[in-house]
Design a protein around this nucleic acid. Sequence first.
RNA 1: GUCCCUGUCGUCUAGUCAGGCCUAGGACAUAGCCCUUUCAAGGCUGUAACACGGGUUCGAAUCCCGUCAGGGACGCCA
Length: 492
Amino acid sequence: MRGVGGAPHPLRPLSSNPRPRVRFAPSPTGYLHIGGARTALFNWLFARRTGGVFILRIEDTDAERSTQASLQAILDSMHWLGLEWDEGPEVGGPHGPYTQTERKAIYRQYAEKLISSGAAYRCVCTKEQLDQQRKAAEAAKRPFRYPGTCRERKDIPVDVPHVVRFRMPATGETGFDDLVKGRIKVRNEELQDEIILRFDNLPLYNFGAVVDDVSMEITLVARGDDHVINTPRQVLMYQALGYPVPQFAHLPMILGADKTRLSKRHGAVSVLQYRDEGYEPQALLNYLARLGWSSGDQEIFTIAELIEKFDWSGCGHTAGVFNPTKLLWVNAEHMKRLTPAELAARVGARFAARGWNAGSQQRLERIAVVFRERAQTLQELEGAAKFLFERPAALDAAGVTKFLTPAIAPVLEELIAAIATAEPFSEAGLKPVFEAMLAKHNLKMVALAQACRLSITGGTVSPPIYDVMEILGREESLARLRHGAGTARGTA
RNA sequence: GUCCCUGUCGUCUAGUCAGGCCUAGGACAUAGCCCUUUCAAGGCUGUAACACGGGUUCGAAUCCCGUCAGGGACGCCA
């Protein structure tokens, strides 16, 4: 073990750990997206369901693209979703560090073990040589394979810059039983000697993942199915290292509406964006769970139900198209199930961010409950309630033409006078006044209600008018109605 | 190109492993109707799928083969 300093991390001894251990291992090369969130969710559900351990590991060996901001965005996303990890950044744990760049010495040790057993070897082929060979192969329309230049060399000293390659068996086949896809196997001749450790001691994905999964005693690896093809190579590495092969579960990809892999092109894919747009974390989780997994015909699940019912066998094996419209529906369903106090807390926070003060807790809850009926997200709710805090700058023109006509003006003025003293100032006190007015002038409710709605909210759509007036209060309602009456009369 | 995986309504899916209970069920979306103070919500009704072709079988969405289509992987990325 030369050139890597001390050996603070002895190779993991073989042991049997009864508790399932799973991990989510994102790369901090961007925000946490929908696909990553689902992978994290399934791992987390499995851990919670089985009493296992959920580990968060940061795979930051791609120095070019990894950033601190991305890491923070991932941690923020996980916290917001409520996918708390038992071991990993912030919380630590007995198998740390949980960031790959901090584990360099560990990879070197495992690589040396493979070299001494002959399962891997040092390679001094340069990137330039390889690139050239790859281009030549492409030009000749041959698939590129490492020619094995260093495969049998025994004369490469450790102190010469080199990479480490894994020696793939030339014959036979390697397979595994995937928990969602079933038996998968590949002929070993398809595999080639791949680099497992770079010249700077940082591992490549396949090796880094295996070493970390081994040293963190991971018992089940669940990830996106773009990794299926990597798995046989990894199986070979577990075997070469002498550790048991974990179980695998590969989740189908999430696609965009055009059926290609979901990406920024498809609009909102960042978890934090959904937070900002006023989605409920459990709704996002619920939707994500149902994208690729099902439990009979049930669509709406609480987190507790998800934990109780989650099972790899419930996972489908076809890629799924992300459907924002259905997410919206799921979110609305979850909003409906919130208690008034829960909803009010969320709504209040968003109001406060805009400098809106709803007054008492009771009034805030009333607003939340009344407005949620026609909002699918908190952001929508917020938009619909705006008129409560800011007088409409202008009344909807088409609405004015249709409902705030000169003919309604005297009725409105009469109504204003009548409700100035109506008690209570809510549906109970208001309804009789409105009805009397309708009877007297032989009007339909829609005409009066819309005239009021326009005057008070500035638009033609709002919660029931009595509720709106009650929430807004007598003084402000009357002021706006007077202004509306003026508009109707044509003098405003 | 090679290898791996996958094909049920527009979309997510149930059913496929143990073939008949499927004239294929649910949900989102969509169309219509009801309710109605606007818009929603809610209720009811409708349109809409077993990729294709063979085979096995009394019987196939379910099993087998082929075709086609889609996705993924072929890096000193993860």
